[in-house]
């Protein structure tokens, strides 16, 4: 197992700082953020950490890399187009840190999720 550890800073879509997690080189960035959330280290999230399929298909954990390097798994082009990718957009569940990272959440279809949520009043 890799012991290479990196610091991952995350901010929400309004650029408010949410918190940091310790990420590992062989660990999906989203999973490290889930761990930080479990320890109560993430604040200022618009709702909660956008966790969906964790395998690059559903687009929920779409985010912008503000600083740092990473490697990537396949991710659905429906949510990250080639142009998006050039701008630094990724799915956090499909990237692994190669350095400290600074990321901003830009979740997919926020409107739809909230439309559904409101109609269900959950």
């Amino acid at each position: 197992m890799s012991e290479q550890r990196f610091n991952i800073d995350v901010e929400n879509i309004n650029a408010e700082f949410c918190g940091s997690s310790t990420g590992y080189a062989d660990e999906r960035v989203l999973v490290s953020l889930e761990r930080a959330q479990g320890f109560g280290k993430l604040k200022n999230l618009p709702k909660r950490l956008p966790v969906g399929c964790r395998r690059g298909g559903c687009g929920i954990c779409r985010a912008r890399i503000l600083e740092g390097n990473y490697k990537r798994d396949p991710m659905s082009r429906e949510y990250v187009t080639l142009e998006d990718e050039k701008e630094g957009l990724v799915l956090l569940c499909a990237i692994y840190p190669l350095s400290d990272l600074k990321v901003r959440l830009e979740p997919k279809c926020v409107k739809n999720v909230e439309a559904n949520s409101q109609s269900l009043e959950i």
Partner: peptide, 25 residues
């Protein structure tokens, strides 16, 4: 109906979670 839908979907948790309603491919 709306009141018991949580139990309809997840009989033990009795609450929906938003991922189940929104995470699709």
């Amino acid at each position: 109906d709306e009141k018991e839908i949580g139990r309809g979907i997840f009989y033990y948790e009795r609450q929906l979670n938003d991922a189940f309603l929104s995470v699709v491919t």
